[in-house]
Measured scan of single mutants.
Amino acid sequence: NRRVIAMPSVRKWAREKGVDIRLVQGTGKNGRVLKEDIDAFLAG
């Protein structure tokens, strides 16, 4: 159960899209999950 680094707005975006943010690979600094990462995860 790893800790995910993400801005609150990104966490909210993931929740709205029904995405478990822990499954998303972050591409930002220090592995931070970005809004673009959520979109890419949804795109496959």
Score class of each variant (00 low, 15 high):
34 L>R: 08
41 F>T: 04
44 G>L: 14
36 E>S: 14
24 V>T: 02
24 V>I: 11
33 V>N: 00
30 N>Q: 09
16 E>I: 12
37 D>E: 01
42 L>V: 12
14 A>I: 02
38 I>L: 05
8 P>A: 13
17 K>T: 09
5 I>Q: 08
2 R>Q: 11
18 G>M: 07
15 R>W: 14
17 K>N: 15
26 G>A: 07
24 V>G: 00
34 L>W: 03
37 D>H: 01
16 E>R: 10
7 M>A: 15
5 I>P: 05
2 R>H: 13
31 G>C: 07
43 A>F: 09
14 A>F: 03
22 R>N: 12
18 G>W: 04
3 R>Y: 07
38 I>S: 00
5 I>A: 06
43 A>M: 12
30 N>W: 11
13 W>C: 15
43 A>T: 11
21 I>T: 02
9 S>L: 07
36 E>N: 09
40 A>N: 14
12 K>R: 14
32 R>F: 06
13 W>T: 15
42 L>S: 07
44 G>T: 14
34 L>N: 07
34 L>E: 08
17 K>Y: 06
22 R>W: 09
43 A>K: 12
11 R>T: 05
39 D>M: 09
31 G>P: 01
15 R>D: 15
9 S>T: 08
31 G>T: 03
29 K>T: 10
30 N>Y: 12
35 K>P: 04
29 K>W: 09
30 N>R: 10
44 G>W: 13
25 Q>G: 07
20 D>I: 04
2 R>T: 11
14 A>R: 01
3 R>E: 10
5 I>H: 08
4 V>H: 05
32 R>L: 09
1 N>R: 14
29 K>L: 12
23 L>E: 11
23 L>N: 09
4 V>S: 05
8 P>G: 08
15 R>V: 14
20 D>M: 04
31 G>W: 03
35 K>S: 05
22 R>T: 11
2 R>M: 10
37 D>C: 00
23 L>A: 09
41 F>V: 07
35 K>C: 15
7 M>N: 15
16 E>A: 13
21 I>Y: 03
10 V>A: 06
18 G>H: 08
19 V>F: 03
10 V>R: 01
13 W>L: 15
22 R>V: 06
18 G>T: 03
17 K>D: 03
44 G>F: 13
43 A>W: 09
1 N>A: 13
30 N>K: 09
23 L>S: 09
36 E>A: 13
22 R>I: 05
24 V>Q: 01
44 G>N: 14
14 A>H: 02
27 T>K: 05
21 I>M: 05
2 R>P: 11
31 G>Q: 06
15 R>Q: 14
1 N>V: 13
3 R>A: 10
21 I>V: 05
28 G>F: 00
6 A>S: 06
6 A>K: 03
37 D>F: 03
7 M>T: 15
2 R>K: 14
22 R>Y: 09
37 D>N: 04
3 R>G: 10
44 G>D: 14
37 D>P: 01
20 D>Y: 04
39 D>E: 10
26 G>R: 02
21 I>L: 09
9 S>R: 08
28 G>V: 02
22 R>G: 08
12 K>S: 08
24 V>F: 02
24 V>S: 00
19 V>K: 01
20 D>S: 05
24 V>L: 06
27 T>S: 13
20 D>L: 04
32 R>W: 08
39 D>P: 01
17 K>P: 01
15 R>N: 12
4 V>L: 08
39 D>G: 05
41 F>Y: 14
25 Q>L: 13
18 G>E: 05
8 P>W: 09
36 E>T: 11
28 G>M: 01
30 N>G: 13
12 K>P: 00
23 L>K: 12
9 S>D: 14
29 K>Q: 11
33 V>A: 02
25 Q>V: 14
13 W>A: 15
30 N>V: 04
40 A>K: 13
3 R>T: 10
14 A>V: 00
8 P>F: 07
4 V>Q: 06
11 R>D: 05
42 L>T: 06
22 R>Q: 09
25 Q>D: 10
5 I>F: 07
6 A>D: 03
13 W>R: 15
4 V>W: 05
9 S>F: 07
25 Q>F: 12
33 V>W: 01
43 A>P: 05
40 A>I: 08
25 Q>K: 14
4 V>D: 05
20 D>R: 04
1 N>E: 12
15 R>G: 07
9 S>W: 10
27 T>A: 03
41 F>Q: 04
34 L>F: 06
21 I>C: 02
11 R>H: 11
40 A>Q: 10
2 R>A: 10
7 M>S: 15
39 D>F: 06
35 K>I: 10
44 G>P: 08
5 I>Y: 08
30 N>H: 12
2 R>N: 11
17 K>S: 09
14 A>M: 02
20 D>T: 03
39 D>I: 11
16 E>W: 09
14 A>S: 04
15 R>H: 14
31 G>R: 05
32 R>N: 06
35 K>T: 05
7 M>H: 15
34 L>C: 09
3 R>F: 09
29 K>C: 12
18 G>C: 15
29 K>S: 09
37 D>M: 02
1 N>Y: 05
12 K>W: 11
28 G>I: 01
28 G>Q: 02
44 G>A: 14
22 R>K: 11
1 N>K: 14
13 W>Q: 15
9 S>K: 10
26 G>S: 04
35 K>L: 10
38 I>C: 00
25 Q>N: 12
19 V>M: 03
14 A>Y: 03
11 R>Q: 08
5 I>W: 06
25 Q>E: 11
42 L>D: 05
33 V>R: 02
33 V>P: 02
14 A>C: 07
29 K>I: 12
1 N>F: 05
24 V>H: 00
39 D>Y: 06
30 N>A: 10
40 A>W: 08
31 G>L: 04
1 N>W: 04
31 G>H: 06
18 G>D: 06
3 R>D: 09
7 M>Q: 13
43 A>H: 09
10 V>T: 05
40 A>R: 14
38 I>H: 00
2 R>G: 10
37 D>Y: 02
5 I>E: 07
36 E>L: 08
30 N>F: 12
15 R>P: 05
41 F>S: 04
30 N>I: 05
42 L>Q: 06
27 T>R: 05
18 G>F: 05
40 A>E: 10
37 D>Q: 01
30 N>M: 10
5 I>S: 07
